[in-house]
């Protein structure tokens, strides 16, 4: 039983890592009071998903460069997930940029980056 679990862990360690990273990212988003760290949590959350796509597309074999001849399934890594990850990284960067811009504006308006202080300042108004 334990051997089987260890075997699954050894062959699927990327997936366990994915959920650990997802959890850390989500926890940072919820528990951390600092807005910048919240955004870092979002980034970690997204990176976990990128890792998931790359891990899923991995095959022992060659890079997806096709030289005119046909290949059997499983011989060559599917290029689709890698394209997806590239696109998702671009989306993630745009999101981070917008998020940071908003945080700068919040800091300029309220003079704080901490959510608890922000709550107090807003409650006073």
């Amino acid at each position: 039983m334990i051997e089987l679990e260890l075997e699954i862990l050894a062959s699927h360690y990327a997936y366990s890592l994915l959920f650990v990273l997802l959890g850390i990212g989500l926890y940072m988003m919820i528990a951390n009071e600092n807005l910048v760290k919240k955004l870092i949590g979002v980034n970690l959350f997204q990176s976990a998903i990128f890792l998931f796509f790359i891990a899923m597309a991995y095959v022992d074999g060659r890079a997806p460069i096709i030289e005119g001849k046909s290949h059997s399934v499983g011989e060559i890594a599917s290029p689709l997930p890698q394209v997806i990850v590239l696109t998702a990284i671009v989306v993630g960067i745009a999101l981070t940029a917008v998020g940071l811009a908003l945080i700068i504006r919040i800091y300029a308006e309220y003079g704080t980056l901490r959510e608890d202080t922000l709550r107090e300042v807003r409650a006073d108004e």
Binding site: K38, V42, F45, G99, I106
Partner: peptide
């Protein structure tokens, strides 16, 4: 108002989690 930036950031974090 400054409130709109806070509302937008909240939406950004939750919306990104949803899309992810």
């Amino acid at each position: 108002g400054p409130e709109s930036a806070v509302a937008a950031l909240k939406y950004l974090i939750l919306g990104t989690v949803g899309a992810s």
